[in-house]
Nucleic acid binder design. Structure first.
Ligand code: ZN
Ligand code: ZN
Ligand code: ZN
Ligand code: ZN
Lengths: 126, 126
DNA sequence: ATCGATAATGTTATAATATAACATATGCGC
DNA sequence: GCGCATATGTTATATTATAACATTATCGAT
């Protein structure tokens, strides 16, 4: 892992919510990161390897929370609008059904996004 | 449907791919639409009603392709990176499994996003 | 050791997407 | 008409992402 990737990855590991590229930029200014591209480049490499995931619904990034989400499993994110937590899960049967749905239509899937937005257990019971 | 919503909705119905808010703005300038906010406001109302869907993976918008995707069904989009088509499907069993996954964690789901990116049948066979 | 290729980094500028804040107008029930 | 809600218009600005180009580090092959 390169210098910048390490900085970005460690920051994301410590974060308790998805961070935007500009959140990351601001947090790492005193570590030598000065421009958006430095962040986006690190994120691109990390995401390519599965070390971080982009959360489309919030334009943010999180460190992978699973030991090995690299198989054929799709990551499923539950995103709390209140506390902003983004919890990652996998579910083999959903993955399989989704794959089958694509296969039925001869669709060659390269990437799958599953995100559920709502209130987490803690936040709904306030 | 208000004036601006009608303009935006009809444009999306004719489009063969997701349009960005600024695509829409440009296309409707000569119909009186002059500012991004006019488009975003129309899109927000239309999306609220389920007449259009936002495609998170491409920051674009499409008209709903199904007669009634309003039930408890989640829309599943297959997004071709080549021709940019965005085809909408539903699948009750995936919806159910996803709902169960949330319920297990006491997560109160408000909105679900499922998007598959890849190559459509036509484009993969070129 | 040094040449040359590749990957990584840095910097500035700009593109693309989305919202804030405020002003005006339009329609409808009373 | 008046009051209220909804729709619209306008300007400015915030947020997210990439283009284009220059520089530096790394490392194996000669
Ligand atoms: Zn993961
Ligand atoms: Zn929460
Ligand atoms: Zn639909
Ligand atoms: Zn295609």
């Amino acid at each position: 892992m390169t210098q910048n990737e390490t900085l970005v990855y460690h920051l994301l590991c410590q974060a308790d919510r998805p961070l935007s590229a500009y959140n990351i930029l601001d947090a790492l200014r005193d570590k030598g990161i000065r421009a958006p591209l430095q962040v986006y480049r690190a994120l691109a490499k990390l995401a390519e390897r599965g070390a971080v995931h982009r959360i489309e619904s919030v334009n943010g990034f999180v460190a992978c929370q699973l030991h090995d989400c690299g198989g054929s499993e799709v990551s499923i994110f539950m995103l709390c609008t209140q506390c902003e937590r983004a919890d990652e899960f996998t579910d083999a049967s959903i993955d399989k059904k989704l794959q089958a749905l694509g296969d039925d239509r001869k669709f060659q899937a390269a990437h799958k996004v599953i995100e559920i937005t709502g209130l987490c257990a803690d936040c709904r019971s306030v």
